[in-house]
Design a protein around this nucleic acid. Structure first.
Length: 466
RNA sequence: GUCCCCUUCGUCUAUCGGUUAGGACACCAGGUUUUCAUCCUGGAAAGAGGAGUUCGAUUCUCCUAGGGGAUACCA
């Protein structure tokens, strides 16, 4: 049987890290099994669902290239079908009408709590006849769950877990206004979409016991379940805004690479021996549900950042130049011309080992984009005191005579000059860097002088703007 | 409150009864580098606590503690 997985977010906020990881695991499992990965937007809560949230979900999945098969399913468009099934359940005698008022239900819960029992509906209308119904109350439809015995779930991640049926109550499947509840909708949709494996956050774990009774009543085959642990913040609590509860797109914004995010999220809760660096293709080959851990993991942005540095350093230079270009056009509204793009490309080897995010990389390129006289930052200004400036202007005269302009010749020239004039190399190199880049730290000096070219380099020295 | 799950270095994790408990990130020290970063070498760093089972427990069982989740006419 063909494996079919699904990602079923509700569009009530941004697509956060935990959601994306769930999507990733579904996607990988489907790919690993040559199956289908489907997307279903659970937008039945009209009050909380927003268009922006829908777009954020789609944007996030696209960013990570977690492409889904077929058109996405909007749950709101399937309400008619859910009602149909709900009413069928009623007809079959697996469900019944309940006329309890909200006040009554609250009372039931309070009563149960007082008696140290699980707060649950007491089944008041389970066996009553419709003739006893109050005439101006619209009923909800509740499903009949077994009252004795226990229900067991065989979960791929969590193992075999069972709970006593008296912990479950007859939950609502159709509201008094006739609309279906989540519990019904998921089951119907998963069934209709042919979902074979439900991989979701383990906050849904206890729902599974309930949903199972809907499957049973309908005589539908149960999908396989894999409930994956939730991701927590560094403080061990819920993922808060400080700790990664941002939308995934904000990581894109911060300059994290899509491949970094994929690799990081994959390794959070899943492992393959000591393997840390895993490409998309490898992940598809290696992924399995059995290697998912049962304990929750903490989101560590430091780790994400260092992984990002790795992926930046190993990305090809042309792609990085494109990323830098996009950064400037999208975030700074600056269009970099081809000539400067060439400088950046030529200087990329020296840049990329120093950047941990695309944003850092882009900012680092600034001195390739500027033209003499360039702006100097605080530290470079400090380096460029009068003594150092006059030393530079002296050296300028020798540099002017250098004919072959490449990093080896430049290095030879500088070293020779220092030796002849009995100057400490650092005494000359550091001011040179400051004058040429406007910064106190930069890629290798000789390399960037070569990339910049002779005339621009000389222009920057002679035009020091301090 | 009730039910369910979890617990190995700071973090992500390996270990499927016998290991000097391994790796990665972060951290510290040294080396390379004109700077910074990369890179290389080394270091510190863990089985929540307590009972059992066993010749032997990180690994199996139970209890305790801590954490998380679920307990809606939300999804």
């Amino acid at each position: 049987m063909k494996v079919i997985t699904r990602f079923a977010p509700s569009p009530t906020g941004y697509l956060h890290i935990g959601g994306v990881r769930t999507a990733l695991f579904n996607w990988l499992f489907a790919k690993n099994n040559n199956g289908l990965f489907k997307l279903r937007i659970e937008d039945t809560d009209v009050k909380r669902s927003t268009q922006e949230a829908k777009e954020a979900i789609i944007k996030g999945l696209k960013w990570l290239q977690l492409d889904w098969d077929e058109d996405e399913v909007y749950q709101s468009k399937r309400i008619k079908r859910h009602k149909e099934i709900g009413n069928e359940l009623l007809k079959l005698g697996h469900a019944y009408k309940c006329y309890c008022s909200p006040e009554e239900l609250t009372e039931m819960r309070e009563q149960a709590r007082k008696e140290k029992r699980a707060p649950r509906y007491n089944g008041k209308w389970r066996d009553k006849d419709d003739s006893e119904a109050p005439n101006n109350v619209k009923p909800v439809i509740r499903i009949k769950c077994p009252q004795a015995g226990s229900t067991e779930i065989n979960d791929i991640v969590q193992g075999n877990i069972s709970i006593k049926n008296n912990e479950l109550d007859d939950f609502i499947i159709l509201r008094s206004d006739g609309t279906p509840t989540y519990m019904l909708s998921v089951v119907v949709d998963d069934y209709d979409m042919g979902v074979t494996h439900v991989i979701r956050g383990d906050d849904h774990f206890t729902n599974t016991f309930r949903q199972q009774h809907i499957y049973n009543a309908l005589n539908w085959p149960l999908p396989k379940y894999a409930h994956i642990p939730l991701i927590h913040g560094m403080d061990g609590g819920k993922l808060s805004k400080r700790h990664g509860a941002l939308g995934v797109d904000s990581y894109d914004d911060m300059g994290y690479l899509q491949e970094t995010m994929l690799n990081y999220l994959l390794r959070l809760g899943w492992s393959h021996g000591d393997k840390e660096i895993i490409s998309r293709e490898e992940a598809i080959k290696l992924f399995n549900l059995d290697s998912i851990g049962k304990s929750s993991a903490k989101f560590d942005i430091e780790r994400l950042t260092s992984l990002n540095a790795y992926y930046i350093e190993n990305k090809n230079n042309e792609d990085l130049v494109t990323a830098v270009k996009n950064y400037y056009t999208n975030k700074k509204n600056i269009n970099i011309d081809n000539e400067d793009l060439t400088l950046i490309l030529n200087g990329m080897n020296g840049l990329k080992s120093r950047a941990r995010t695309i944003n850092e990389l882009a900012e680092m390129c600034s001195f390739y984009i500027e033209k003499a006289p360039i702006t100097l930052d605080k530290k470079s200004k400090k380096v460029l005191n009068d003594d150092n400036i006059s030393a530079l202007k002296l050296y300028y005269k020798q540099l002017l005579k250098l004919e072959e302009w490449n990093k080896i010749k430049i290095e030879e020239d500088i070293k020779m000059y220092c030796q002849e004039n009995n100057i400490n190399l650092g005494k000359l190199a550091q001011p040179l860097r400051a004058a040429i880049t406007g910064k106190a730290v930069s890629p290798g000096l000789y390399e960037l002088m070569e990339v910049l070219g002779k005339s621009e380099t000389l222009a920057r020295i002679i035009n020091i703007n301090n």
